[in-house]
Simulated assay, not measured.
Amino acid sequence: MKPLSEHEIELSVNGRRQVVRVPARRLLSDCLRHDLAFTSTHVGCEQGTCGACTVLVDGAPMRSCLLPAVTVDGCEITTAEGCRAPDGGLGRVQRALVRCQGVQCGFCTPGMVVSIVAFLRECPRPSPEQARDAVAGVLCRCTGYQDLVAAVLHAARPDGGASG
């Protein structure tokens, strides 16, 4: 008999079905990092302020450090690892961040990647102001945001930022 404080949950993480037993108060960020080894999900503030822990839950950006894992039972979770290209290479947002020098220390990068991916699904041709708003929810201490805005606009190009 399992202890009452543990729950078996099933989620799909980056397209792969995962079944995991977690304590009732285990946060999704800890479940992803420690139970399932998806280490791109960073935890910075543990208060939902910095955005480094952002993942997509059924396509919507969410702060995984605020979500008990049991609340996402049955959901589709996408981490930065799941934002890669189908061939396993860098996805268009990841390529744009590299090309536009939007990656410095890298701590905020996973949260930034999934936030931008979700944003571009909703707003495929953003203005510079919309791009600025898209990256404002993830704190970055290194870039000054100009390179991040440029990366959003680059990734939004019709060719997906593949050229120039």
Results as ranks from 00 to 15, higher is better:
P3A: 14
S5W: 12
E6M: 14
H7Q: 14
E8S: 09
S12E: 15
V13D: 04
V13P: 06
R16A: 09
R17G: 01
V19Y: 03
V20R: 08
R21C: 12
L27G: 00
L28P: 02
S29P: 01
D30V: 12
L32E: 07
R33F: 02
H34C: 14
D35T: 07
A37N: 11
F38V: 06
T39W: 05
S40T: 13
T41V: 15
H42Y: 06
C45T: 07
E46K: 04
E46N: 15
G48Y: 04
G48C: 09
T49A: 14
C50T: 01
C50S: 08
C53V: 02
L56H: 03
L56A: 12
V57W: 02
A60G: 04
P61W: 08
L67T: 01
P68L: 14
V70Y: 02
G74A: 09
C75D: 15
I77R: 07
T78F: 00
T79H: 00
R84H: 06
A85E: 12
P86A: 12
D87Q: 06
G88P: 06
G91R: 05
G91C: 09
R95F: 01
A96N: 03
A96Q: 09
R99W: 05
C100Q: 13
Q101G: 01
G102C: 08
C108K: 03
V113P: 07
I116R: 02
I116W: 00
A118G: 03
A118Y: 08
F119N: 03
R121F: 06
R121I: 00
E122C: 05
C123Y: 03
P124V: 05
P124H: 07
R125D: 15
P126C: 04
P128H: 08
E129Y: 04
E129G: 09
A131P: 02
L139D: 07
G144H: 04
Q146E: 14
L148V: 00
V149S: 00
A151E: 11
L153I: 05
L153D: 11
L153A: 07
R157D: 15
G160H: 11
G161Y: 06
S163F: 12
S163W: 14
